[in-house]
Each structure stands twice: as structure tokens, then as C-alpha cells.
Design a protein around this nucleic acid. Structure first.
Length: 669
RNA sequence: GCACCCGUAGCUCAGCUGGAUAGAGUAUCUGACUUCGAAUCAGAGGGUCGCAAGUUCGAAUCUUGCCGGGUGUACCA
């Protein structure tokens, strides 16, 4: 039985008693973690709630402490409970049986397993993240999206869910068109020229996406004065959407190469995908037409005869009374017959949820080191060996908060067409942007106006070429980490040092992006983002590395021997755990045991930052423990065994928590 | 105008669905490497939780109003 299961037993018991004695709503019963270890391991503030309830229903006034007493006798009988205290104004504080839990935690099953946990037959959850427009390299804002999405995927997997990861490729949108316009009309390049350029860039060790980054910015500047070029944009976009022409072929090359570059960037951060669904297939396989038919069948779209939106097909939304109703409608088909982005998105969302009745064709796009394939959609050939995609029970779309409105429309839209599926199936995992501090923008070489310099932050803009490129930042982090690693580990080979530096860089970056809660704007600052000290991924990794190094010195058999010893002498172990140093050991064990509920908490709130904070706290508690208590030099064998078990539980939980954030524990550092 | 988000230590942020003395990191100052690793640890100072009412045993957390900042609100994607 895990701590989580035990908490449920305890809560159930309390609920039962509360219902039979006081007839109160069981949802009002909450469990919490006391602020200090002296107050126990679990606390129920239920007595306050009941006192209020009594006063309201019967008028009887009862002391909360007396009410808490009612629960005590039953709960103390439970297997894991060592003691119960009524504290303060009426808290019901539970003290757990430390010895028993230490023994259980020594068994391997208390940790959630992010790798093999899930049941193949369980319902699938789809997470879409990254979805960078394939016309330039990824910047730090895109990385926040990807790290958030990837970590959420890992969290879902750790709780046993089956997850499919999609990275949507908008390969036929205006952003791609802009770069294509740049290649064709600014640089007079043919597809062959671009391929040659691509080859040349490879030889020079720069990358195609960097080139596009600059070109995209150049086009943006040119548009401001060159009306003719703007006309070319519309024309180009049209050709790309239509397909089967030279411009579309060129665009496909450009988009595909950018996708490859972006996937390489993400691979550096251990971020991987199952499928790359493309907008071109949503168009060519007529997903929209099918969705449109379904909408008409179900009567959820209307054709507007007159007024401002005359000639459009709209989806009506619950309009507030008294308003001009049409203002609440969302246009899905424009008066010229073309489909809006939201329309296409609704069709795509329907496919993700298995509601569309159509499927993509698929081919392999690339293969990861571990042999897993990334698939991409096609309109032509269909590799019959492809796995089943789409058809998920629930979909999480990781998209920044600026797109809340269209996401709301998609969610409500799908739920209107399929009320049986409902709104809960579509979740917008929304997060705030990464912006630049005025200092960071200037550091990147951008000239700011006085107005801009006075702002608290400046939004990044691909169109302006203003942003911190992901690869640049990772490079800088790796460089800094490398100089630290090499000065501390001169005996290691350079290759090994580079690998460790990379693991540290990834840990620092991922942790930095995860420690902020989703709705906090990250104002990017180089110094903060590149820190290796304090509340950082590096700190957490370091704690795990040092724990591991203790075990390296202890030798192979230390853990099994220690486990054997502590199971053989119950009473003495109990004495140690409840003795003078006991609290130092116990606080590590109990915190490690809370990993599972932390992961649940992160899922319920769709908030990976919860896991980041937890991991840092666990690292800190572990640090405290092994610095205060020397394991190798401990002379009392039984006490040493308790310490070994405690350290082992700590490093396993820490390693697992880091793994769930996509952060590896280096061999040394 | 309307909708959503934010305002907590000098700075950057947490605060677990209303709970116990509001916490971290950073910066500043003081101290600790002959000790399982100092990317670390111990300690100090630093708070009208934007303001004002309300709800109640109890509010940073819930309600309302105001102040200040941000983002949306397209026949763009």
C-alpha cells in the first residue's frame, strides 16, 4: 500500500464517521500537510468545518477540539497510524508509523514509473505541443511550450496514462509563405538554389532555420514599404494551399527542412514526438468538408443572409441577452468561401477525438536513437504499418494564453457538435509568454526606443527577428557548464565532460522554464536563466549525484544488507526513527513518499511547476540529511542501515522526479 | 467598452481548492572545505500580501468596488 492509498483509506474512514455522526457533505473534508514536522505527517482541519456545520443546522455550539476527539479512537486503530494529536484550535494531526513506512518504501513499488507504467488497453490521451511555424528556428518562447508539454506528457505517463504526442505543422500558412516570398522575390532563388544554399550552410556549420530566421525578419521589414511584395504574399499563400505547383514544392522543402531543424533542437532537450500532423493534409484530405457536413447535419452552423456577415457560415454561441446576437457568432467560412483557421482547427480537434470519421495517411518521418519512429501525415501513399493515431479520450492543447479565445471556440464548437463528448474532452493547457527584459533585448543587439526601454518587458517577435534562439541559449549553457565540469573533473575524457555539460545545460534550462507557474510571464534574463546555483536544475542534479557517490563508496551489497537489517530489528529501528535524529531521517522518507500525490496534483491542476517545486524541496531535504549525518563513518550498524535506506529512497525518488521533468542525473558533476 | 490574467521581502517568484508564526531563491552581511563532493551548508537583516469594504471561528486565498500593469476581443494564422 502506498502513501496515497493510505491517505484515501484514512479520508474514507473520516468521511464515514462524519456522515453518520454529523451528516455533513463529504466533499468538505480535506487532507493537508502540516506546516511543521512537529505537527505530524497529515492533518485534518475537519473539526472546524463540523463545528460550523453544527452551529448552522442545530444551533449547538461545540468546541472543535471536542469534535476532533470523536475521530481519534477509530483512526488510531489503523495500521499506519502511530499517534494522533488534537492540536491548536482543533486540528486532527496524524503521526504515521515511521518504521512500517520505511520498510514499505524500501520495496520498489512506491514510486510512479514514467516508463512502463501504463496499461496498453487504457484510453489514450493526446497532447499537442511545440507546433512552431516551420519557417524559422525555435526561440525560448517556443521552448517554454515544448518543455511544458513534454513534461506534462511525462507526468501523465508517470501516473499510468497512455499518451500520444503530436506536434502540429502549419506548413501551408502565411508564415511559411512569407519566407517563401523572401526566397523567390527578394533573393530570386529557385528550389535548386535553396537546396544548394542548404548544402553550403551545412558545410559552414550554420543551419537552415537560422538563415530563415533572418530572411523572415527581412521580409517583414520589406512589407512595410513594398506593397507589391505584399500582393505576392497573398498569391504565394494561395499557391501553397492549392498544392501541385512549383511554389508549393519549394514551400514544402522549406517547411520540411525547418521541421527537421526544430526537431533537432528539441532532441537536444530530450523532447520527442509520435506524430507530425500537417495542415496540408487537413486541406487535401478534405477534413474541413467532412466536418462541415457533420455540422450542417446537426444544425450547428448557420448561413448568414444579410448584415455585416452576409454570405458567411457561422457557429452561434450562447449570446448574452440584450446584445446584438450576431456579434457572438464565430465565422467559420468567409463570404468568399474560404475556411478560417478556427474552422480547420475544429476539424482537426474532431479528428483528435475520433469524431471526424476520416483519417490521415501516414509515412515515417524519422527515427530516434531508441528505434522509435516519428510519423508524419501525407495525402498520398499510406504506410500500412503505421500505429493508430488520434481517437483519444481527451486532448490537451499546449498553446499560449493569447490564443484562449480561438481555443474556447474550438472547445465549445466541438462540444456543440458532439454534446455526448462534452467540453471536458478538450483542454487548453494555456500558459503565459516568455518576454524579454529591455536589457536582454539590448544584449541581443536590438535598439530600443525610450518608450520600449521604460517597459517592464518586451514581447518577442519572430516577424521582427527579436528573440533568444533556443540553440544559441543551449550552446551558451553548455559552454558555461563545460568549463565548470572540466575544472572539477580533470580526469574525465573530454567526451564525457561534454556529455555531462549537456545534461547540466538541459537540466538548468528545463528547470528554469518549469519553476514558474503557467500564468506567470517569464521576463527572460540571461543571468537568471543561466544560473547553476540556488533554485536550479543543477542544484537538484547535484543532490542526486552526491547521493549516488555515497553509494558508489558503500559498495554493491549495502542496500540489500541494510534492508535486511532493518526488517530484522523492528523495535530498535523504531527507536532510531523516533529518537533524536529520527526526524531528520523521517522528513526525507515522508517527502520522497509524496512524489506520487505530487504527480496527481500536477495533473489535476495541469501545472508542471508543482513537480519542479517538489523536486527542489526533496533535493534540499536530502542535502540537509547527508550533510548533517555522515553515513560512511557511522559506527552504529543499525543506525547506518536506517541511513542507507533513507538515502536510497531519497535518490530513487529524486531521480524519478527529475526523469519526469526530462532531466537526467549525470554520473558525476 | 467587454472578457481573462497579474499585483506578496530590494529583485525574481511560491503559497497545495479558506487554516497553525506568510515561505523559497537571489542580492547584501557574518561564518564553515585535513571530513560520504563547497554547483554546498549554518546564521542575520529584509513584509501595511496594491487600496477599501464585506463574508466567518479564521482571508494572501472567497465577494464587491477602486487603483495600477498585461493579454485578448478579425471575413489573421
Amino acid at each position: 500500500m502506498s502513501l496515497k492509498q493510505f491517505q484515501k483509506t484514512l479520508t474514507d474512514q473520516i468521511k464515514q464517521k462524519a456522515i453518520s455522526n454529523f451528516s455533513i457533505d463529504p466533499d468538505k473534508i480535506t487532507i493537508e500537510v502540516p506546516p511543521k514536522t512537529e505537527f505530524g505527517d497529515l492533518a485534518f482541519p475537519i473539526a472546524f468545518e463540523l463545528a460550523k456545520h453544527l452551529k448552522q443546522t442545530t444551533g449547538e455550539k461545540r468546541n472543535p477540539r471536542a469534535i476532533a476527539e470523536v475521530f481519534r479512537s477509530d483512526l488510531i486503530e489503523l495500521e499506519f497510524v502511530r499517534d494522533i494529536q488534537i492540536a491548536g484550535p482543533g486540528y486532527l494531526n496524524i503521526f504515521l508509523d515511521r518504521n512500517l513506512l520505511l520498510n514499505r518504501a524500501c520495496e520498489t513499488d512506491f514510486l510512479p514509473d514514467s516508463i512502463s507504467g501504463h496499461d496498453e488497453t487504457s484510453q489514450k490521451i493526446c497532447v499537442e505541443h511545440t507546433s512552431v511555424n516551420p519557417n524559422k528556428s525555435a526561440h525560448i518562447g517556443h521552448v517554454r511550450n515544448s518543455v511544458l508539454g513534454d513534461t506534462f506528457v511525462r507526468i501523465l505517463k508517470a501516473s499510468g496514462k497512455r499518451v500520444e504526442v503530436q506536434n502540429y505543422i502549419d506548413n501551408t500558412g502565411v508564415q511559411v509563405a512569407d519566407v517563401v516570398v523572401g526566397f523567390i522575390y527578394l533573393e530570386n532563388k529557385s528550389l535548386e538554389d535553396i537546396k544548394a544554399l542548404d548544402q553550403k550552410l551545412r558545410e559552414e556549420n550554420t543551419s537552415f532555420d537560422y538563415y530563415c530566421w533572418d530572411l523572415y525578419a527581412k521580409v517583414g521589414v520589406e512589407y512595410q514599404t513594398n506593397e507589391k511584395l505584399k500582393e505576392k504574399r497573398a498569391e504565394t499563400l494561395h499557391l501553397i494551399e492549392e498544392g501541385n505547383n512549383e511554389t508549393a514544392e519549394l514551400a514544402d522543402y522549406v517547411a520540411t527542412r525547418n521541421v527537421e531543424c526544430i526537431l533537432d533542437t528539441m532532441e537536444r532537450l530530450s523532447i520527442r514526438y509520435d506524430l507530425l500532423p500537417r495542415e496540408s493534409e487537413i486541406l487535401h484530405l478534405h477534413f474541413w468538408q467532412k466536418a462541415f457536413e457533420l455540422m450542417k447535419e446537426r444544425g450547428v452552423v448557420n448561413f448568414v443572409e444579410d448584415g455585416k456577415m452576409a454570405g458567411c457560415w457561422v457557429m452561434p454561441f450562447e449570446s448574452h441577452e440584450g446584445n446584438d446576437d450576431n456579434e457572438q457568432d464565430k465565422i467559420l467560412v468567409r463570404s468568399n468561401g474560404t475556411v478560417t483557421y478556427t474552422g480547420k482547427d475544429i476539424a482537426y480537434q474532431m479528428w483528435k477525438l475520433g469524431l471526424l470519421g476520416l483519417d490521415f495517411h501516414y509515412k515515417k518521418f524519422s527515427e530516434y536513437e531508441n528505434g522509435k519512429d516519428v510519423w508524419i501525415t501525407t495525402a498520398g501513399e499510406n504506410d500500412a504499418s503505421h500505429p493508430e493515431f488520434g481517437d483519444s479520450e481527451r486532448v490537451y492543447n499546449v498553446i499560449d494564453t493569447r490564443q484562449s479565445y480561438p481555443q474556447e471556440v474550438v472547445k465549445k464548437g466541438v462540444a456543440t457538435i458532439f454534446p455526448e463528448k462534452g467540453e471536458d474532452a478538450s483542454v487548453h493547457l494555456s500558459y503565459e509568454m516568455v518576454a524579454l527584459s529591455p536589457n536582454a533585448a539590448e544584449e541581443l543587439g536590438f535598439e530600443l526606443s525610450d518608450e520600449e526601454r521604460s517597459r517592464s518587458f518586451i514581447e518577442m517577435s519572430g516577424r521582427k527577428g527579436l528573440g533568444v534562439k533556443a540553440d544559441d541559449l543551449i550552446d551558451r549553457l553548455e559552454k558555461n557548464a563545460f568549463s565548470e565540469v572540466s575544472s572539477r573533473n580533470e580526469d574525465l575524457s573530454e567526451e564525457k565532460q561534454r556529455q555531462i555539460a549537456s545534461e547540466i545545460a538541459v537540466g538548468a534550462l528545463r528547470y528554469f522554464l518549469l519553476k514558474f507557474t503557467k500564468n506567470t510571464v517569464i521576463v527572460f534574463d540571461f543571468k537568471e536563466a543561466m544560473a547553476f546555483e540556488g533554485e536550479t536544475g543543477t542544484y537538484c542534479q547535484n543532490a542526486a549525484v552526491r547521493l549516488n557517490s555515497i553509494f558508489r563508496k558503500l559498495g554493491e551489497d549495502a542496500v540489500p544488507n541494510a534492508k535486511k537489517k532493518i526488517t530484522e530489528s523492528d523495535a530498535a529501528v523504531s527507536g532510531i526513527l523516533n529518537g533524536d535524529d529520527g526526524a531528520d531521517f523521517w522528513s526525507v522518507v515522508i517527502l520522497a513518499l509524496r512524489l506520487e500525490e505530487t504527480i496527481d496534483h500536477a495533473i489535476v491542476n495541469a501545472e508542471p511547476a508543482v513537480l519542479a517545486r517538489y523536486t527542489f524541496n526533496l533535493a534540499k531535504t536530502s542535502n540537509l540529511f547527508y550533510q548533517k549525518h555522515r553515513i560512511l563513518s557511522e559506527t552504529d550498524e543499525l543506525k547506518q542501515s536506517v541511513m542507507i535506506c533513507t538515502a536510497d529512497i531519497a535518490r530513487r525518488a529524486l531521480t524519478q522526479a527529475l526523469e519526469t521533468m526530462g532531466i537526467r542525473v549525470p554520473e558525476r558533476m
